[in-house]
């Protein structure tokens, strides 16, 4: 069963260093297509580090790899992804008249990708 969670986009060290090497290089692509997830949430969904998951928002869907984090670092129900084309794909263009789309709090459904 897909579960609804909250996705936060942000920067990370590796996102920054791999960005300098180039957005079409393997490392940047890997960094920006990995989602961090609470380890207990992952266990409940039957996921291990590196497993593919599908994230779906009102604006689009993407497949990414997941990586577990402890509850102390990332509470249940929260997901973190480094900014990149995939995080943008889930973002809506509406800004509520502010110019700024919501990119640090996106409701997504999370579903393991079988096979």
């Amino acid at each position: 069963m897909p579960e609804t969670m909250t996705l936060i986009g942000g920067r990370s060290s590796r996102q920054g260093t791999s960005l300098c090497a180039g957005k079409f290089e393997a490392e940047y692509i890997e960094v920006s297509s990995t989602v961090e997830m609470n380890a207990e949430d992952m266990a409940r969904l039957g996921l291990k580090d590196g497993d593919p998951v599908r994230l779906r928002s009102a604006s689009g869907e993407v497949s990414v790899r997941c990586k577990g984090r402890t509850t102390k670092d990332l509470p249940p129900g929260l997901l973190f992804i480094a900014y990149g084309p995939l995080s943008s794909r889930l973002m809506a263009s509406d800004t509520a008249g502010s110019g700024m789309p919501i990119s640090k709090h996106i409701e997504v459904t999370v579903e393991p990708v079988s096979g």
Binding site: K23, P85, S88, R89, S93, T95, P101
Partner: peptide
């Protein structure tokens, strides 16, 4: 983000930025 999201603007000059990756679909 709004202007392009609504399909406005008939040309764009982009300097040192990557809206093609960072903006909405």
């Amino acid at each position: 983000a709004d202007l392009l999201g609504r399909g406005e603007a008939d040309a764009a000059l982009i300097i040192a930025a990557d809206p093609g990756a960072n903006f909405s679909h």
